[in-house]
């Protein structure tokens, strides 16, 4: 595995290597290099199995992390390749030419994260959602509970009590009603 990574390092710059387990590595590379790296890994290093392609939303950094998980049948190692792309203009090179089934992941990402993969087959067709009008739901700024409450109105008639507040109310109401404390809270 070391050798593979060294060979890869000669070609491009690898930002970080994490060895999570004996059979699991993660590397971070630049967005531009993805096609080069993947085709190198697939053709030269025998990482022939694309286990998945997924995104993680880092909203506070304004980035999407894309993870390509590859597997090598010979050395039996999983290699995760991480790429960071901009959240605003989220667009990525399509890899359906390397792995025909990648279109499926890309179509899902387009729908659930709003990441575009120009050139990928059927990328604009809806995948699991139908008639979706909000922002892509897997983005972190989409609040699913609020949407659910707004759209699917829950069965009414439920109330709950916080034990702390309830006991205050019941047991030392008078004291509680006085100013929380004598301290100025500024």
């Amino acid at each position: 595995m070391e050798q593979i990574l060294n060979r890869l390092k000669q070609k491009i710059e690898i930002k970080s290597v994490i060895n999570k387990r004996a059979d699991l590595y993660f590397i971070t590379i630049k967005k531009e290099h993805i096609e080069l790296v993947l085709s190198h890994l697939k053709q030269q290093e025998n990482f022939t199995h694309l286990a998945f392609l997924q995104a993680v939303d880092y909203i506070e950094d304004d980035k999407f992390q894309l993870t390509y998980m590859l597997y090598n049948y010979d050395i039996k190692v999983n290699l995760g390749i991480k790429v960071f792309i901009d959240r605003d203009k989220s667009e990525m090179t399509s890899i359906h030419k390397l792995w025909p089934h990648a279109w499926q992941y890309q179509r899902e990402l387009k729908e659930l994260f709003g990441i575009d993969f120009p050139g990928s087959p059927r990328v604009d067709e809806s995948f699991v959602l139908e008639g979706w009008e909000e922002i892509p739901p897997m983005r972190r700024d989409f609040d699913t509970l609020a949407y659910s409450v707004k759209t699917f109105y829950q069965r009414p008639g439920r109330t709950t009590n916080d034990p702390k507040r309830y006991m205050k109310e019941k047991l030392y109401k008078n004291f509680a009603k006085s100013p929380e404390s004598g301290r100025n809270d500024e």
């Binding site: 109330t159 309830y166 047991l171």
Partner: peptide, 29 residues
């Protein structure tokens, strides 16, 4: 109310019950 906290479905409410009095060691809920 720990059951209420842990319930991932928000299925549990804490409500007062007539037969139980609130005292110092029992919220009565």
């Amino acid at each position: 109310g720990t059951c209420e906290d842990i319930c991932q479905n928000a299925a549990i409410d804490l409500v007062p019950v007539q037969t139980v009095e609130t005292d110092m060691s029992d919220s009565g809920l």
